[in-house]
Amino acid sequence: MSAAGRFLRSWALFAAGVLVWEVATRLAGHPFFPPPSTILVTGARLWFAGPVERAFLGDTVLDDVLPSVLRAVTGFAVAALVGVGLGTVLGRSRTGMQWCGPLFAFARAIPPPALIPVFLVLFGIGGRMQVVTIAFAATWPILLNTVDGVRSLDPVQAETVRALRMPPGHRLVLVVLPAALPKIFAGLRLSLSISVILMVVSELVGSVDGIGFQLRQAQHAFDFPVMWAWVVALGVVGLGLNAVLLAVEQRALRWQPTRATGVPR
Protein backbone atom coordinates (compact mmCIF):
# COMPACT_ATOMS: atom_id res chain seq x y z
CA MET A 1 0.00 0.00 0.00
CA SER A 2 1.30 3.48 -0.82
CA ALA A 3 2.06 6.03 1.88
CA ALA A 4 -0.95 8.10 0.81
CA GLY A 5 -3.15 5.02 0.96
CA ARG A 6 -1.96 4.14 4.44
CA PHE A 7 -2.55 7.73 5.56
CA LEU A 8 -6.09 7.68 4.14
CA ARG A 9 -6.90 4.37 5.80
CA SER A 10 -5.64 5.41 9.22
CA TRP A 11 -7.59 8.69 9.20
CA ALA A 12 -10.74 7.53 7.39
CA LEU A 13 -12.56 6.46 10.55
CA PHE A 14 -11.57 9.70 12.27
CA ALA A 15 -13.00 11.76 9.42
CA ALA A 16 -16.18 9.68 9.36
CA GLY A 17 -16.60 10.20 13.12
CA VAL A 18 -16.28 13.96 12.76
CA LEU A 19 -18.81 13.90 9.93
CA VAL A 20 -21.36 11.91 11.97
CA TRP A 21 -20.82 14.29 14.87
CA GLU A 22 -21.38 17.28 12.58
CA VAL A 23 -24.67 15.87 11.27
CA ALA A 24 -25.89 14.79 14.72
CA THR A 25 -25.12 18.13 16.39
CA ARG A 26 -26.74 20.08 13.56
CA LEU A 27 -29.88 17.95 13.80
CA ALA A 28 -30.02 18.19 17.59
CA GLY A 29 -29.22 21.92 17.73
CA HIS A 30 -28.34 21.67 21.44
CA PRO A 31 -26.28 24.64 22.76
CA PHE A 32 -24.00 22.36 24.81
CA PHE A 33 -22.94 20.53 21.66
CA PRO A 34 -21.88 22.92 18.90
CA PRO A 35 -21.07 21.26 15.56
CA PRO A 36 -17.36 20.57 14.84
CA SER A 37 -17.33 23.16 12.07
CA THR A 38 -18.37 25.84 14.59
CA ILE A 39 -15.69 24.62 17.03
CA LEU A 40 -13.08 24.75 14.29
CA VAL A 41 -14.02 28.29 13.21
CA THR A 42 -14.06 29.42 16.86
CA GLY A 43 -10.66 27.84 17.39
CA ALA A 44 -9.20 29.45 14.28
CA ARG A 45 -10.47 32.83 15.47
CA LEU A 46 -8.96 32.19 18.92
CA TRP A 47 -5.53 31.02 17.88
CA PHE A 48 -4.80 32.34 14.40
CA ALA A 49 -6.03 35.92 14.49
CA GLY A 50 -2.67 37.43 15.40
CA PRO A 51 -0.49 39.80 13.38
CA VAL A 52 1.45 38.61 10.33
CA GLU A 53 4.87 38.99 11.95
CA ARG A 54 3.84 36.46 14.61
CA ALA A 55 2.74 33.97 11.95
CA PHE A 56 -0.89 34.89 12.78
CA LEU A 57 -0.63 33.31 16.23
CA GLY A 58 -3.14 34.89 18.59
CA ASP A 59 -2.31 36.31 22.01
CA THR A 60 -3.76 33.31 23.74
CA VAL A 61 -1.31 30.96 22.00
CA LEU A 62 1.57 32.84 23.62
CA ASP A 63 -0.21 33.52 26.91
CA ASP A 64 -1.91 30.17 27.49
CA VAL A 65 -0.90 27.39 25.10
CA LEU A 66 2.84 28.02 25.33
CA PRO A 67 2.97 28.23 29.15
CA SER A 68 0.89 25.03 29.37
CA VAL A 69 3.18 23.12 27.05
CA LEU A 70 6.28 24.49 28.77
CA ARG A 71 5.02 23.35 32.17
CA ALA A 72 4.18 19.89 30.90
CA VAL A 73 7.55 19.56 29.20
CA THR A 74 9.47 20.92 32.20
CA GLY A 75 7.66 18.63 34.64
CA PHE A 76 8.21 15.69 32.32
CA ALA A 77 11.91 16.53 31.91
CA VAL A 78 12.42 16.75 35.69
CA ALA A 79 10.61 13.42 36.06
CA ALA A 80 12.79 11.84 33.37
CA LEU A 81 16.01 13.06 35.01
CA VAL A 82 15.00 12.00 38.52
CA GLY A 83 13.40 8.76 37.35
CA VAL A 84 16.30 7.56 35.22
CA GLY A 85 18.95 8.80 37.66
CA LEU A 86 17.42 7.42 40.83
CA GLY A 87 16.15 4.31 39.03
CA THR A 88 19.65 3.49 37.80
CA VAL A 89 21.18 3.89 41.27
CA LEU A 90 18.46 1.82 42.96
CA GLY A 91 18.39 -0.82 40.24
CA ARG A 92 22.13 -1.34 40.39
CA SER A 93 22.18 -1.48 44.19
CA ARG A 94 21.43 -4.82 45.77
CA THR A 95 19.35 -3.54 48.69
CA GLY A 96 18.13 -0.17 47.39
CA MET A 97 14.69 -1.33 46.35
CA GLN A 98 14.25 -3.34 49.54
CA TRP A 99 14.59 -0.07 51.45
CA CYS A 100 12.62 2.10 49.07
CA GLY A 101 10.06 -0.34 47.65
CA PRO A 102 7.29 0.14 50.25
CA LEU A 103 7.79 3.91 50.26
CA PHE A 104 7.43 4.03 46.46
CA ALA A 105 4.43 1.71 46.50
CA PHE A 106 2.69 4.06 48.94
CA ALA A 107 3.66 7.30 47.18
CA ARG A 108 2.62 5.89 43.83
CA ALA A 109 -0.75 4.74 45.19
CA ILE A 110 -1.77 8.32 46.01
CA PRO A 111 -3.74 9.74 43.07
CA PRO A 112 -1.57 12.74 42.10
CA PRO A 113 -4.48 15.21 41.79
CA ALA A 114 -5.05 14.68 45.52
CA LEU A 115 -1.69 16.29 46.13
CA ILE A 116 -2.58 19.48 44.24
CA PRO A 117 -4.11 21.06 47.39
CA VAL A 118 -0.91 20.20 49.27
CA PHE A 119 1.32 21.65 46.57
CA LEU A 120 -0.98 24.71 46.36
CA VAL A 121 -0.31 25.38 50.04
CA LEU A 122 3.42 24.81 49.58
CA PHE A 123 4.00 26.68 46.32
CA GLY A 124 0.92 28.88 45.79
CA ILE A 125 -0.99 29.37 42.56
CA GLY A 126 1.16 29.33 39.44
CA GLY A 127 3.71 27.52 37.35
CA ARG A 128 5.91 26.22 40.16
CA MET A 129 3.05 24.28 41.78
CA GLN A 130 2.10 22.82 38.41
CA VAL A 131 5.59 21.73 37.46
CA VAL A 132 6.02 20.05 40.85
CA THR A 133 2.66 18.26 40.51
CA ILE A 134 3.48 17.05 37.00
CA ALA A 135 7.01 15.98 37.95
CA PHE A 136 5.78 14.10 41.02
CA ALA A 137 3.15 12.14 39.12
CA ALA A 138 5.33 11.45 36.07
CA THR A 139 8.39 10.24 37.99
CA TRP A 140 7.01 6.87 39.12
CA PRO A 141 6.56 5.01 35.82
CA ILE A 142 10.01 6.15 34.64
CA LEU A 143 11.66 5.29 37.97
CA LEU A 144 10.16 1.83 38.28
CA ASN A 145 10.75 0.95 34.62
CA THR A 146 14.35 2.11 34.90
CA VAL A 147 14.91 -0.06 37.99
CA ASP A 148 13.46 -2.99 36.08
CA GLY A 149 15.49 -2.17 32.97
CA VAL A 150 18.91 -1.83 34.53
CA ARG A 151 18.36 -5.17 36.26
CA SER A 152 17.46 -7.00 33.08
CA LEU A 153 21.02 -7.41 31.78
CA ASP A 154 21.40 -10.70 29.94
CA PRO A 155 23.72 -13.14 31.83
CA VAL A 156 25.91 -13.68 28.75
CA GLN A 157 26.22 -9.91 28.32
CA ALA A 158 27.11 -9.57 31.99
CA GLU A 159 29.84 -12.20 31.63
CA THR A 160 31.08 -10.54 28.44
CA VAL A 161 31.39 -7.28 30.34
CA ARG A 162 33.52 -9.04 32.95
CA ALA A 163 35.62 -10.85 30.36
CA LEU A 164 36.26 -7.51 28.63
CA ARG A 165 37.31 -5.93 31.96
CA MET A 166 34.98 -3.02 31.20
CA PRO A 167 35.35 -0.22 33.78
CA PRO A 168 32.16 0.80 35.69
CA GLY A 169 31.64 4.09 33.86
CA HIS A 170 31.84 2.48 30.45
CA ARG A 171 29.66 -0.37 31.65
CA LEU A 172 26.93 2.07 32.66
CA VAL A 173 26.95 4.14 29.48
CA LEU A 174 27.73 1.45 26.92
CA VAL A 175 25.88 -1.55 28.33
CA VAL A 176 23.57 -1.04 31.31
CA LEU A 177 21.66 2.01 30.06
CA PRO A 178 21.33 0.88 26.41
CA ALA A 179 20.05 -2.50 27.62
CA ALA A 180 17.51 -0.71 29.81
CA LEU A 181 16.47 1.79 27.14
CA PRO A 182 13.43 -0.11 25.75
CA LYS A 183 11.93 -0.30 29.25
CA ILE A 184 12.88 3.29 30.03
CA PHE A 185 11.03 4.47 26.92
CA ALA A 186 7.96 2.45 27.90
CA GLY A 187 8.01 4.43 31.16
CA LEU A 188 8.57 7.72 29.35
CA ARG A 189 5.56 7.17 27.07
CA LEU A 190 3.31 6.47 30.03
CA SER A 191 4.69 9.45 31.93
CA LEU A 192 4.16 11.82 29.02
CA SER A 193 0.42 11.19 28.97
CA ILE A 194 0.37 11.53 32.76
CA SER A 195 2.18 14.87 32.38
CA VAL A 196 -0.47 16.20 30.00
CA ILE A 197 -3.28 15.01 32.29
CA LEU A 198 -1.72 16.67 35.34
CA MET A 199 -1.02 19.82 33.32
CA VAL A 200 -4.76 20.23 32.65
CA VAL A 201 -5.94 19.18 36.10
CA SER A 202 -3.54 21.54 37.85
CA GLU A 203 -4.60 24.39 35.55
CA LEU A 204 -8.29 23.71 36.18
CA VAL A 205 -7.84 24.25 39.91
CA GLY A 206 -4.79 26.41 40.54
CA SER A 207 -3.80 28.66 37.67
CA VAL A 208 -4.34 32.08 36.14
CA ASP A 209 -3.38 31.07 32.63
CA GLY A 210 -2.98 27.97 30.49
CA ILE A 211 -5.26 25.75 28.44
CA GLY A 212 -7.04 24.30 31.48
CA PHE A 213 -7.65 27.79 32.88
CA GLN A 214 -9.11 29.04 29.58
CA LEU A 215 -11.26 25.92 29.34
CA ARG A 216 -12.77 26.59 32.74
CA GLN A 217 -13.22 30.32 31.96
CA ALA A 218 -15.16 29.46 28.79
CA GLN A 219 -17.33 27.02 30.71
CA HIS A 220 -18.11 29.67 33.36
CA ALA A 221 -18.99 32.14 30.60
CA PHE A 222 -21.28 29.55 28.94
CA ASP A 223 -19.19 30.00 25.78
CA PHE A 224 -19.43 26.36 24.70
CA PRO A 225 -17.81 26.63 21.25
CA VAL A 226 -14.71 28.13 22.91
CA MET A 227 -14.80 25.45 25.64
CA TRP A 228 -14.86 22.73 22.99
CA ALA A 229 -12.15 24.46 21.02
CA TRP A 230 -9.83 24.18 24.06
CA VAL A 231 -10.69 20.52 24.41
CA VAL A 232 -9.60 20.06 20.80
CA ALA A 233 -6.43 22.05 21.53
CA LEU A 234 -5.60 19.62 24.34
CA GLY A 235 -5.90 16.72 21.95
CA VAL A 236 -3.59 18.42 19.47
CA VAL A 237 -1.01 19.23 22.18
CA GLY A 238 -1.09 15.64 23.43
CA LEU A 239 -0.69 14.24 19.92
CA GLY A 240 2.17 16.63 19.17
CA LEU A 241 4.14 15.85 22.34
CA ASN A 242 3.63 12.15 21.79
CA ALA A 243 4.82 12.40 18.19
CA VAL A 244 8.04 14.11 19.34
CA LEU A 245 8.69 11.43 21.96
CA LEU A 246 8.01 8.63 19.47
CA ALA A 247 10.46 10.19 17.03
CA VAL A 248 13.14 10.34 19.74
CA GLU A 249 12.42 6.75 20.72
CA GLN A 250 12.55 5.56 17.13
CA ARG A 251 15.98 7.13 16.80
CA ALA A 252 17.34 5.93 20.16
CA LEU A 253 16.14 2.36 19.64
CA ARG A 254 16.83 2.08 15.94
CA TRP A 255 19.17 -0.85 16.70
CA GLN A 256 16.20 -3.03 17.62
CA PRO A 257 15.48 -5.57 14.87
CA THR A 258 11.75 -4.84 14.97
CA ARG A 259 12.29 -1.14 14.36
CA ALA A 260 14.41 -1.33 11.25
CA THR A 261 13.29 0.96 8.46
CA GLY A 262 10.58 -0.55 6.34
CA VAL A 263 9.65 -3.21 8.85
CA PRO A 264 6.18 -2.58 10.32
CA ARG A 265 6.03 -2.53 14.07
Binding site: D154, V156, Q157, E159, T160, R162, A163, R165, L174, V175, P178, A179, L181, W255, Q256, P257
Partner: peptide
Protein backbone atom coordinates in the same frame (compact mmCIF):
# COMPACT_ATOMS: atom_id res chain seq x y z
CA UNK B 1 41.06 -11.27 37.87
CA UNK B 2 40.81 -11.31 34.09
CA UNK B 3 44.31 -10.41 32.85
CA UNK B 4 44.69 -7.52 30.44
CA UNK B 5 46.28 -9.59 27.68
CA UNK B 6 43.56 -12.23 27.59
CA UNK B 7 40.47 -12.37 25.38
CA UNK B 8 37.47 -14.64 25.64
CA UNK B 9 35.14 -15.84 22.87
CA UNK B 10 31.81 -17.26 23.98
CA UNK B 11 29.71 -19.89 22.27
CA UNK B 12 26.66 -17.63 22.31
CA UNK B 13 27.82 -14.94 19.86
CA UNK B 14 24.23 -13.68 19.51
CA UNK B 15 24.16 -12.51 23.10
CA UNK B 16 27.84 -11.80 23.57
CA UNK B 17 27.80 -9.02 20.95
CA UNK B 18 25.97 -5.89 22.06
CA UNK B 19 22.93 -5.42 19.83
CA UNK B 20 22.83 -1.62 20.23
CA UNK B 21 26.36 -1.19 18.86
CA UNK B 22 27.16 -1.43 15.18
Amino acid sequence: AVPDELSFVFQDYGRSLFPWLS
